[in-house]
Simulated assay, not measured.
Amino acid sequence: MVTASSISFGANTTFTSSPIPKTKPLFIPHSLKFTTGNGRAAVTFQRAVSVIPKATSADSRATKEPTATFHGLCYVVGDNIDTDQIIPAEYLTLVPSNPDEYEKLGSYALIGLPATYTTRFIDENETKTKYKIIIAGGNFGCGSSREHAPVALGAAGCSAVVAESYARIFFRNSVATGEIYPLDSEARLCEECSTGDVVTIEIAESRLINHTTGKEYKLKPIGDLGPVIDAGGIFAYARKTGMIASRN
């Protein structure tokens, strides 16, 4: 439990915090400034941040490192792949919560890539990709803030993207939706791998193995975000850990 002492502001005014269960998100001030005068007191919050507490031991999945392993063909793209290339705006009318439209959305993933990409991410007349892993250069997912981008990749059957860097909104949307793992590489893997290479990603060990070339590469750890993605996104994780009520 988290508690705070009572604070008296004069003869008749007292502020007392109530206990807060550690399974709930906390809204904690970054700094406080107390001022007094004329028998009154004021509290000024200079800045505040939202803090999600560590999960309790009862939530074993949330306290463990993610253990997912992905294996399959990789699809390689370059720098600055934006959200219009991932899923063009004309398909944003599709509603991912509708199973049929979710599948249809996935069938259009990466359809906006320029003609220089002669290999299609999804074969013609197919709805799923044979490429389980995308390997990208820098600034992957730049452009708009549409959540449809990571959702389309996940709906297409992609499990992870390994990029040199990400647009931060795409990275956040990937975690929030739980559709794909957005993994950072320590090397420029888009120049080390080719479309069609057979690769394995071991999340717990933060490494990528290219079985076609026989090379291994270190990835940056996904850390505390792993259990959120593994749970299926931020709302599924919040329900699992008791932060919000579970659906009946």
Rank of each mutant, 00 (worst) to 15 (best):
Y217E: 04
Y217Q: 05
Y217S: 06
Y217W: 07
Y217H: 13
K218S: 14
K218D: 14
K218C: 14
K218T: 12
L219H: 03
L219A: 04
L219Q: 03
K220M: 07
K220N: 14
K220I: 15
P221L: 07
P221H: 04
P221S: 12
I222F: 09
I222H: 01
I222G: 02
I222Q: 00
I222W: 10
G223E: 02
G223H: 00
G223V: 00
D224S: 09
D224E: 08
D224W: 03
D224Q: 12
D224F: 09
L225A: 13
G226H: 07
P227I: 00
P227W: 06
V228T: 09
V228S: 01
I229K: 01
I229D: 01
D230T: 06
D230L: 11
D230F: 08
D230H: 11
A231F: 03
A231Y: 02
A231I: 04
A231P: 13
A231L: 10
A231W: 05
A231T: 10
G232I: 03
G233T: 04
G233I: 00
G233K: 12
G233H: 07
G233F: 02
I234D: 06
I234Y: 05
F235A: 07
F235S: 06
F235M: 15
A236W: 08
A236H: 06
A236F: 04
Y237Q: 15
Y237P: 15
Y237G: 10
Y237E: 11
Y237C: 12
A238N: 12
A238I: 10
R239K: 15
R239G: 13
K240T: 13
K240P: 07
K240H: 10
T241Q: 04
T241F: 07
G242K: 02
G242S: 06
G242P: 13
G242M: 13
M243Q: 15
M243I: 08
M243L: 14
I244T: 12
I244N: 07
I244V: 15
A245W: 03
A245V: 06
A245C: 07
S246A: 15
S246C: 15
